[in-house]
Design a protein around this nucleic acid. Structure first.
Lengths: 316, 316
DNA sequence: CTCTTGCATAGATTATCATCTATGCCAAGT
DNA sequence: ACTTGGCATAGATGATAATCTATGCAAGAG
C-alpha cells in the first residue's frame, strides 16, 4: 500500500460509495459525476494495491480488503472529526492555554477577574507570572507570555494596550498620624518624614518621582523595600510614609490612614498588553473578551475603566 | 479545516517534524530538502486553518492545535499501519475467506486436506458447498464459489484445473459374493445382477456408462439412489452391485467386497478448478499452495497425483 | 565579528489530481 | 425488442501538489 497517494478526499468518496451502496448515488451526494467516482475508486484501489470490489457487471461487493479499508476509513475520518471539534472549541476560546505576566501590584486585583474567568472556562489553562516591573518587562521583551499587565505600557510598536482599571496612588500614614485630619495638606509638609519606596523602575515609584519633580520637590530620607506588602506593614508600624496603590490597601485597614495630600491621589491605570508581533492564543483573546464583558461583575465599578473593547478591535 | 486538502504524506511530514523536533532533521530522514518540509508544513497549516507552530525565529513550539493535530496524526497513521498489516496478512493468504464447492464424492477426501489447512490458517474462513455434479456445475456457471472440485472439469475457457487425486472406480459387492474370488472376472458375467447407480450426470455414473458403451455392454436392472452413502449401505445389505469411488469405501468395511473385474478399477481423477475470469481470493490461492506442499501429508500417497503446482503457475 | 545552523521565501518544473463530457456496455424491466 | 439505470473507459483540462535550487535572514557558537 502506498500511503503517500492516499487523500482524505479519496477515503470520503470510498466511504460514501460503501454506505450508499452505489457509485451513482454516491456521486449525487458528493455533487460529482459518476465517472469521477469510478476513477477515484480506481485510484484508491491502486494506492492500496489490492482490489476493493469484486465486480460482477452491474453488481459489486466489497472484498475483504475493501471491508477492512472501510473500517479504517470510518475510524480515521471519525478521528479527524474529533480533531475538528477540538479545533472549533479552540477557536471559540473554550480550550487551550495562555500565560499572563503581572507586575506585583496587579496581583491584588487580577485574581478577581481570573477567578470568575477560569470558572467560566474551566478547560483553559492559565499560567500567571508575577514580578516587578523590570522582570515583567524582560519577559515582555523576550516574548515569554501571551498577555501582560502594566501600569505604563512599554513603548514598542509591538505593544497593544487596553486600559481597564484605575490605579490611584495615595499617600498612606500610620493610623493617628498628626496630619491625618488636615485640610490643604501639601506634600511639602511631609518631606521631613521618611518615605518607604519600592525599587527604582517600579511603576508607582516612577510615577511618584516624576510628580515630585514636576512639583520641584525632593524627598528626604527614604527606605527601599521590595514589596508593597512589606511597605504596608512598615507604614502601619510607624517606619514612615508611603505612596501606594489604593488597591494594595485592604478595605478596612486599622493600622493605616490615607493622608489627604493635595494633588493626590495620583491617577494611573492598569492595562492589558498584548504583543502585535506574536500570535495571541485564541484562549487569551477569549479571556480579553471575557474581561470586556464581565469586568464590572468582577471588580468594584468605581475603579473600572473598561477600554478592553478597543484593544480587541485593534487586535482584529 | 478543509479535510479535502489533507494528504497522508502531509501528516507524515508533520509527524516527522514533531518527533525530530527539527525541520532540517525531518527533511533528512524523509529524503527531502528542508524547504520542501517548510512548505509542506505551511500547506498543512493552511489546510487545517490555524497555525500549528509558534515561530520565534529559529526556535518553534507547537501550538495547542498543533499538539492535538499531532495526536490525531499518530492515531490515524497508526490506524493505517494496522490496515497495512492486515493487508500483508491478506496478501500472504493468512487471512480472508474463500468458498469451495465439491461434488458429493469428494466430500470423502477433502476434509482430510481442509482439516490440516484450517489448522494451519485458522484466520481463513472456508465455506464448503456440496452438491451433485449438476448442482456444482450450476454454481460454477454462476460464479458463486472461488474453487471447485470436479472429476471432469467443465469445458470452458474460464476453467483452470489442477489434478490432485486418483479416483479409482471399483465394482463393489456384498461380502461373500460368489464371484469375489474369481480370476478373469468380466463385467459381462455380472450383467444379470442389479446395479445401484447415482443420478445421470454424476461423474462416476458417466464414466461407468461410457466404459460400458465402449465394451458394448448394457446393464440389466438398475436402481437409482441419490447418495454414495445410500448406495454403499444398499450394496452391503444385498440390494445389488455398484461402481463406486474407492474413496467412498472405508478402509475396512466388513459388509463389502471389491470384485476384481477386468478393466477395473476405472481410473479417473479429481481436480481443483478455479475460474480464470474471476479474481481468486488470495486465501484460496494460499489454500492451493498449501495443497501443493502438503498433499502427501494429508492423504495416502498411493492416491495422490499432485499437479496443483502447474495450476498455480498457470494462474500466475 | 564571522561562521554555522536552521528556517523562510521565491521561482521553476514536473507529475498528478480532480473533474468534466461523451460514449460504450451490460443487465434488468416493460 | 426497447428503454433505463448503473458502471467503465477515454480524452481533455485547469488546478495544485511535490519537489527542487538558489538565496535570504536570524540566532548561537567560536
Amino acid at each position: 500500500m502506498n500511503i503517500r497517494h492516499l487523500t482524505f478526499r479519496l477515503l470520503q468518496v470510498f466511504v460514501s460509495v460503501v454506505t450508499t451502496g452505489s457509485y451513482s448515488e454516491a456521486a449525487r451526494r458528493l455533487h460529482l459525476t459518476q465517472p469521477t467516482v469510478s476513477q477515484q475508486l480506481k485510484r484508491l484501489a491502486e494506492a492500496v494495491g489490492v482490489p476493493l470490489f469484486t465486480a460482477q457487471g452491474n453488481q459489486w461487493q466489497l472484498t475483504d480488503a475493501g471491508r477492512e479499508l472501510y473500517r479504517a476509513c470510518v475510524d480515521v475520518l471519525g478521528r479527524f472529526d474529533d480533531f475538528d471539534d477540538y479545533l472549533s472549541e479552540l477557536e471559540a476560546g473554550k480550550k487551550g492555554r495562555f500565560s499572563i505576566a503581572l507586575v506585583n501590584t496587579a496581583q491584588y486585583v487580577l485574581p478577581r477577574i481570573l477567578g470568575p474567568y477560569s470558572h467560566a472556562f474551566p478547560q483553559v489553562e492559565v499560567t500567571v507570572e508575577i514580578g516587578n516591573r523590570q522582570q515583567v518587562l524582560a519577559r515582555f521583551d523576550r516574548q515569554l507570555d501571551d498577555l501582560y499587565v502594566f501600569s505604563h505600557p512599554p513603548a514598542s510598536e509591538a505593544t497593544c494596550a487596553g486600559r481597564f482599571l484605575r490605579n490611584p496612588l495615595v499617600v498612606v500614614a500610620p493610623k493617628g498620624h498628626p496630619k491625618a485630619e488636615s485640610e490643604h495638606l501639601s506634600l511639602s509638609h511631609l518631606l521631613d518624614e521618611r518615605f518607604l519606596l519600592r525599587e527604582p523602575g517600579s511603576a508607582s515609584r516612577m510615577l511618584f518621582e516624576s510628580w515630585l519633580q514636576s512639583q520641584g520637590l525632593t524627598l528626604g530620607a527614604t527606605l527601599q523595600m521590595a514589596s508593597n506588602e512589606a511597605i504596608r506593614i512598615g507604614v502601619s508600624s510607624g517606619m514612615g510614609l508611603a505612596v501606594l496603590s489604593r488597591h494594595v490597601l485592604p478595605a478596612q485597614d486599622v493600622g493605616l490612614t490615607i493622608l489627604p495630600v493635595e494633588g493626590f491621589p495620583l491617577e494611573s491605570h492598569w492595562h492589558f498588553i498584548a504583543r502585535r508581533d506574536c500570535r495571541l492564543p485564541r484562549a487569551a483573546f477569549g479571556f480579553l473578551q471575557f474581561v470586556e464583558q464581565s469586568l464590572d461583575q468582577c471588580l468594584d465599578p468605581q475603579w473600572t475603566e473598561n477600554h478592553v473593547g478597543d484593544m480587541l478591535k485593534s487586535l482584529g
